[in-house]
């Protein structure tokens, strides 16, 4: 079984994120970049599925796929040090400013090239937070989709999940190939071991350009954008208001504040 995991490099979620005034794009230079937190769960899921089905010896492989700047190799190394086998990075200056339609187009091309049995994604990125790429891949590749997986199991050519949403918990399944996106409660991503980190240095990251994928620069990036940012402005930070210390009447003070604001 061939598993592909889509992973995105994002600014560290502990950092204050900003937009760049001239490009109107997220400023990725000034902040630490990490593997999207939710994608670690997808990588962990892939590794657990391999382990539960006979391991690498049984011929199962995990390939990471990312689209992003050269620097995204750092995030890929993290996934490789967790235990993924190899990675593909699509990097091209013409991809800067790509929107979700362009990103899904590129990822779909790479998936077609690799032809995996199972495609795993996170539910959303922590920077743009659109939560749309897995559904877009399902449409572009005309493959079934299982989303919001809080549990995933693979047996024979069937994938079954527990879909966890506000509406409840649904058990559902689909034949492979299928696109599965996982939620953060699905597992506890492993920390890369020293051995894993050393091994990752030798693992292959194939870097592809648009030419390699047969996509023209006019179709993607800022040039081919399906949506554009007109303008943006930074909001003043919220300022701290009243703070009282409870000395026996804190709850009463709170109820008075709410009454005064007509909130209770």
């Amino acid at each position: 079984m061939k598993i592909a995991v889509c992973v995105k490099q994002v600014p560290d979620s502990w950092a204050e994120k900003k937009l760049n005034a001239s490009t109107k794009l997220i400023d990725r230079e000034s902040v630490d970049a990490v593997l999207n937190d939710l994608d670690e769960y997808a990588v962990e899921s892939a590794l657990q599925i391999v382990e539960a089905n006979g391991g690498a010896e049984a011929g199962h492989t995990v390939t990471l796929i990312s689209m992003g700047p050269e620097r995204a190799t750092e995030a890929l190394r993290k996934g490789l040090s967790m235990g993924a086998d190899d990675a593909v990075l699509v990097s091209d200056v013409a991809l800067a400013g790509s929107d979700a339609l362009a990103t899904s187009l590129i990822l779909a091309k790479v998936i077609q090239r690799i032809n995996p049995d199972l495609i795993l994604c996170g539910t959303e990125s922590t920077d743009a937070r659109m939560s749309v790429i897995p559904s877009m891949l399902s449409e572009r590749l005309e493959l079934p989709q299982l989303s919001f997986a809080g549990e995933v199991n693979v047996s024979a050519d069937q994938v079954s999940i527990k879909r966890v949403t506000d509406e409840g918990v649904d058990s559902m399944n689909s034949p492979m190939p299928v696109i599965v996106s996982v939620i953060e409660k699905i597992n506890e991503p492993r920390y890369p071991s020293f051995k894993g980190i050393m091994a990752a240095k030798k693992k292959k990251i194939e870097v592809l350009s648009l030419v390699d994928l047969g996509v023209s620069a006019a179709e993607v990036g800022g040039a081919g954008a399906w949506s554009l940012v007109n303008d943006f402005n930074e909001q003043a930070a919220r300022s701290a208001g009243v703070k009282v210390t409870d000395e026996g009447a804190g709850g009463t003070a709170l109820s008075e504040f709410l009454a005064e604001k007509r909130l209770a």
């Binding site: 701290a240 208001g241 210390t245 009447a249 709850g251």
Partner: peptide, 25 residues
Amino acid sequence: EVTDFGVVGDLFAVLPQATSAIAAR
């Protein structure tokens, strides 16, 4: 840093008191 109104205290004391004060009102 972002609150309009903050109470420094134990939630197990402050919340029930606030709840009964609001209920009374």
